[in-house]
Design a protein around this nucleic acid. Structure first.
Lengths: 117, 117
DNA sequence: GCCATTACTCCAACAATGTAAGAGAAATCG
DNA sequence: CGATTTCTCTTACATTGTTGGAGTAATGGC
């Protein structure tokens, strides 16, 4: 393994989406939440599933299959749940991200250096 | 190339350090600034140089060799300068990082969920 | 029942990035 | 000169990112 429990960018984004989505975190909803974060950059659905698999095998999250919903095409979903290990890794990487944001802000003079967002 | 101008985690950290260091951005100083951000996680010097090379070949930064300083062992340094392309990529990824931070914060109830930092 | 359609999951192959470990060059000090 | 210190750069490999498409279920209309 690379190191303790470091995670990559997409992994962070995926964990964040799961945290936010709570009980309704499954492939497609996670995908759209992630794209909300990376906008305007797109992310393919496949990338999400691959990342989900890897995070699960690292023990950062667990999954279960739900019953199909009575919607057109609504088939069974695999819902994910954030585990303690995953939450810890997410928080740690978020702190680094925040420090970076602050450093950039102060280096650029504290003024608003970005209008979007 | 992966996509437009997306950059990885270490790349973001390195660009941030260069922005912050201004005229004194070279391998060793960048390394210590990056570790200040990732603390308590360590990063090897080699990782920094490799990343610097890659960023330079992408046109995100340029470098020049400086004259040696009159210090014990003070040899010539290769100083880096952030180019427009790099600054743009950094800002973009920083915005995503900030959105993630905010989403985590609101998902966790707005309370202070981390004491360190 | 069948078929078109929709929502969703998962795999395989490849590209980019992250990381460690160590070799090697240049300068100062005694 | 030789020891020491600061710094750069390379190699080799591990992990993560990304795409594109295959495959499975369920619904609704005919």
């Amino acid at each position: 393994m690379a190191k303790a429990d470091s995670i990559g960018q997409l992994e962070q984004l995926v964990l964040t989406a799961i945290l936010r989505l709570g009980d309704d975190a499954y492939g497609v909803s996670i995908h759209s939440t992630v794209e909300e974060l990376t906008k305007p950059r797109a992310v393919s659905l496949g990338a999400i599933y691959v990342t989900l698999d890897r995070l699960e095998s690292k023990g950062m999250l667990t999954s279960r299959l739900t019953d199909p919903t009575p919607e057109r095409g609504g088939r069974a979903k695999r819902c994910y749940r954030l585990e303690a290990l995953g939450e810890r890794a997410l928080k740690e990487s978020a702190v680094t991200a925040k420090r970076m944001w602050d450093m950039i802000g102060s280096a650029l003079g504290g003024r608003k250096w970005v209008k979007e967002y």
